[in-house]
Structure formats: structure tokens, C-alpha cells
Amino acid sequence: MLQVGLTHFLIVSAILFSLGIYGIVTRKNAVMVLMGIELVLNSANINFIAFSKYGNFGLSGQVIALFVIILAAAEAAIALAIVLNIYKTFSNVNVDEIDHLKE
């Protein structure tokens, strides 16, 4: 059981995913919500690479993990631009207090 196999990587990824979801749900600050999203994307990447190795699928899983990293970079840039705009408009970035589109 202590011998590391596919299951160990999947369990690490599942716990990381749950922690990310917990962060997304409980944090008020929009930047903290983004950090939770990064945790979730990382856990998905661990799954891709683990299955790529243990499923004997060649390197396709690694290529898709690379695509996920690139998408995460684009997503973080756009989301932070939106957060900066929200801060300019409302003077805070608490996601539970911002409930209309313009002011």
C-alpha cells in the first residue's frame, strides 16, 4: 500500500481539487478566488500527467497539461484585469458585495 502507484497521485489530486473548491466557495476576496481556481487547474494537470504515464498513452497527457497551463495564464491575466476594473468602480473586490454590473 505504501508502494506509490497511480492511486496515490489520484488521491493527491483529489485532495488538492477539494481544497481549491473550498477556497473558491469560502473566500470573499476575488484574488483569493483566483488562487482557488489555480489549485483546481493544478489538480487536473496532475491527473492528466498521471494517466499519461500509467495508462501508457504516450505523451498526449503531457501536451494537454501544457495547454491547460497556457489557458491558466490567459485566464489569470483576463481575470485580474476585470478585478482591477471592479476595484476602480466599487473600491473593493469582495465578490459577495458586488451584485450589479455597473454603478
Binding site: G5, L6, T7, L10, K53, Y54, G55, N56, G58
Partner: peptide, 8 residues
């Protein structure tokens, strides 16, 4: 799970 580690 199908587990046959590929030679990296």
C-alpha cells in the same frame, strides 16, 4: 485502474 507504467 489500468496500470501499466510506460517507460519514460
Amino acid at each position: 485502474w489500468k496500470s501499466e507504467p510506460s517507460a519514460t
